[in-house]
Design a protein around this nucleic acid. Structure first.
Length: 494
RNA sequence: CGGGGCGUAGCGCAGCUUGGUAGCGCGCUUGGUUCGGGACCAAGAGGUCGCGGGUUCAAAUCCCGCCGCUCCGACCA
């Protein structure tokens, strides 16, 4: 962003080059592009504490849309929201062996309160299985108390060494569902149901295509029986775990003593699940759709779907503003989230760039020339395509246009994902792909951890998942050549 | 946790080599003229030079320690 090309590109091509001077082009430095975007579009700001951030109003508005659209789905599938405490007695967290081992390195510990050393240190929740299981052991007595279907929206803390805004922060916001069931089958069904909800939500609302599948033993959640995941592909060819759903089996039930008296009169342990998505989704949104001018937001998630920029000139100032206000009012009544940018201290050109950077899907220009024709000029953020629209048609046409744009963003993202998904049985080719263009690499795997590790060491790529809907194409393991057991997606990941 | 880069006004940077009055552009404030792809003129405001210690008559500048951001690795849901 420091090199603005002001001297180098002063000659030809300057016009297209310099729309957004503040943002490093993706091709120059993708990581810097990402940082520039989150800061310049005011999604977040760094906090005085490492790995922490403020989510600014525009970023939080995106999170609120995610919450709103996902919360409805969580409730439609029978779950209720509740809230559990942030502090967990250390002893509780330590009950489940694999769970402690997984989280111990990144746990924040409170040892003092009110100026006195605490008798027992408190853990700041890195996830809430432990504290919720403690409650569940008391709340559940009978098979009639099942299923227990609870979700909570909250913050969690994981002391991270390497942090990146939204993608990996020491504190982040998420939702975590925690359910208890009578049978293993029912728990399994629940875990898969919620993974399906995530997939549908991501694809429908966020226009992010994902690969759904199961995690390997190595990659699964600390304490889970099985972990399911949806994986998205970013534009730099790296994968991002967008959501996970765990079948916890009876691991937690046994150590937290969550039992119920079944119909047959015997005492049984419950079968549990947990599942979550976080503010990381905002990072995915940025990296899947964004371009060199900044954010590109899918209309369904965009806090502002349409921005109206009146072209105010001296002669027609009042007429233009009045017309813009009328248009704004009709669109508001049509249920469109819009902003009328009638600030007079900024020029139209400045506003164009500003709102494009912020990813507003559609811009309507309304100037003196449009008064006569009773129209606006609609400009799409994704394609830049301009189209004159008569005022009378706006309430009907704009919702259509926004849906078209939503669909096009999904198609474009899906095409990118498909074009960056290779498959093969040649280990050398796999290494080369992971070194250069990256993306997904579909291959067969024998199922042994040593092959998984070897591939990781040599390619830096991990097995993202064992996909649900993909047949094995090759008989032999990509790494060792022995008989393969699974087809897997490899990728370098965030 | 290991290695590199960076930290001076809200943002981007110069000044540091060779110690001595803290500067530039953008932004901000006020007034005026403008407005179909980041307008222009004029007058202003704004800084514990990341933090702590040391050397010195004197430190943004030299030395030591720490913190933060960032990139590349290791680790990790």
């Amino acid at each position: 962003m420091e090199q603005q090309g002001s001297s180098t590109s002063a000659g030809r091509g300057k016009a297209e080059k310099e729309f957004v001077k503040e943002i490093t082009p993706q091709s120059v430095d993708y990581s810097q592009w990402y940082i520039d975007v989150v800061l310049k579009t005011e999604l977040m700001d760094y906090a005085p504490v490492k790995g922490c951030m403020a989510i600014r109003p525009y970023g939080y508005a995106i999170w609120e849309k995610i919450q709103q659209l996902l919360d409805r789905r969580i409730k439609d599938t029978g779950h209720q929201n509740a809230y559990f405490p942030m502090f967990i007695p250390q002893e509780l967290l330590q009950k489940e062996a694999a769970h402690v081992e997984g989280f111990a390195p990144e746990v924040a510990l409170v040892t003092k309160g009110g100026g006195e050393t605490l008798a027992e240190p408190l853990v700041v929740r890195p996830t809430s299985e432990a504290i919720i299981c403690d409650f569940y052991s008391r709340w559940i007595q009978s098979w009639r108390d099942l299923p227990m279907l609870i979700n909570q929206w909250c913050n969690v803390v994981r002391w991270e060494k390497v942090t990146r805004p939204f993608l990996r922060t020491s504190e982040f916001l998420w939702q975590e569902g925690h359910t208890c069931h009578r049978t293993e089958e029912e728990a399994e069904k629940e875990a898969l149901l919620m993974l399906g909800v995530y997939k549908e939500f991501l694809e429908t609302e966020m226009a992010i295509p994902v690969i759904a599948g199961r995690k390997t033993e190595r990659e699964k959640f600390a304490g889970a029986l099985r972990t399911y995941t949806v994986e998205a592909l970013m534009r730099d060819g790296r994968a991002l775990q967008a959501g996970t759903s765990h079948n916890l089996g009876q691991h937690f039930a046994r150590v937290f003593d969550i039992t119920f008296l079944d119909q047959d009169g015997t005492l049984k342990y419950v079968w549990q699940t947990s599942w979550g998505v976080s503010t990381r989704l905002i990072g995915a949104l940025i990296m899947v759709h964004g371009d060199d001018r900044g954010l590109v937001l899918p209309p369904r998630i965009a806090p502002i779907q349409v921005v109206i920029v009146p072209i105010i000139s001296k002669k027609a100032r009042e007429e233009v503003l009045a017309a813009a206000r009328r248009v704004a009012e009709t669109l508001q009544q049509a249920g469109i989230r819009l902003k009328l940018d009638d600030r007079e201290e900024y020029s139209p050109g400045w506003k164009f760039n500003e709102w494009e950077m912020k990813g507003v899907p559609l811009r309507l220009e309304l100037g003196p020339r449009d008064l006569e024709a009773e129209q606006v000029i609609a400009v799409r953020r994704d394609s830049g395509a301009k189209e004159p629209l008569p005022w009378a048609e706006l309430p009907r046409r704009l919702p259509q246009l926004l849906e078209e744009l939503q669909g096009d963003l999904y198609k474009r993202a899906l095409q990118f994902q498909q074009e960056h998904t290779r498959s093969g049985a040649d280990y050398g080719e796999f290494l080369q792909v992971m070194e250069r263009e990256r993306g997904f690499f579909i291959a067969s795997w024998c199922g042994r951890e040593e092959c998984e590790l070897k591939a990781k060491e040599e390619s830096k790529a991990t097995i993202r998942c064992i996909p649900f809907d993909r047949e094995m194409e090759h008989e032999n393991c990509l790494v060792c050549g022995e008989k393969a057991a699974h087809v897997v997606y490899f990728a370098r990941a965030y």
